[in-house]
Amino acid sequence: MSAETQDTYLKPLPRPSAESQPFWDAARDHRLVLQKCRACGKFWFPPSQRCVHCLSGDHDWTEVTGTGRVFSFVTYQRLYHKGWEGEIPYVVAVIELDEGPRLLSNIVGIPADQVTCDLKVRVTFDDVSPGVSLPKFTPA
């Protein structure tokens, strides 16, 4: 492929913090991991230093099932960023994982107009650049 026809990824890439780096490192290996508190056993998201339920500073990055449901979603019909040119409409959703935490992602593998709240979904990884894979969700 010549330089001119080579695909260029124009969307923003995540800029991990020290706190979120393990999440993105695992995603690169196609594993969805969240912080799980050693004191109270609960999960939380987004990443932070202490358990948001009990403030314990003791946790493990734990792989989760990757299954959940669409809590809510919106469908972009307007282009906000050139990286999505030709991809309108696309769906941005709040996913509630079976373990409890909610996270933001895309719903893929289903037409936008067929996405509903409570749709059962599972994680799938989109390898967007050599070092970065984004967890996205598809009907379970």
Binding site: K11, P14, S17, Y80, H81, Y90, K136
Partner: peptide
């Protein structure tokens, strides 16, 4: 910086 723009939010 993350958990938003990379998904087009």
């Amino acid at each position: 910086s993350e958990f938003g723009p990379e998904y087009g939010l």
